[in-house]
Amino acid sequence: MTRVHDMGGRFGDGPVVPEAEDAPVFAEDWHARALAVTLACGALGQWNIDTSRHAREKLSPKDYARFSYYEKWIAALADLLVEKGVLTRADLEGKGAAGLHKLAERALKAENVAGVLAKGGPADREGGPPPRFSPGQAVRARIPADNALVDGGHTRLPAYAAGAQGYILRLHGTHVFPDSSAHGLGEAPEPLYAVRFHASALWAHPEHPEDEVVLDLWQSYLEPL
């Protein structure tokens, strides 16, 4: 079964309300703080991007739906800090031990911010299994879309594509496999493909016969046809 974040194709959300091009980057000061605190905590090196995405996804469906964007970030960060043993529940209640943390020496310093942001965190890797598919080849996305390694675990195969037939558009190279990486099971890199699907393979009422959706899908999400 899917989680609440997997909303591609869902009905009932109403119109998209665009902001002006020159609207402030952060609508509220606390949005900027939430982003900065989250990035700074990531630099402590206690989790990876897949773990942090999963932490947001596994907020309860009620919280996920009622929280604004940066509330999700902060809630997931608090959960993750406790889950990874960086903070205790007592710390969050303001009753924790005083003094410097043992990870304090890893704290991101202002002078290193530009370098860390410029360096990024590339996801491509050497090795892994050889590519099984080539451009143009017909494939089917695995069904069900669940994480095959961990029950209820993180996956990047959206439910709307599960079971659909598509065509390999391009090979992106070999990338870290989030279904494994999110759960401390290793990077397990796999070939990653852009796969195009006709809208008619995904939706009962496509808007236009020529429209397509392209998803980036790992090799183990795909079966040959």
Binding site: R33, L44, D91, A104, V113, A114
Partner: peptide, 12 residues
Amino acid sequence: KGLIDPAALEEI
């Protein structure tokens, strides 16, 4: 706890 540096937040 020294886990984040306020100056780094401003920089981000």
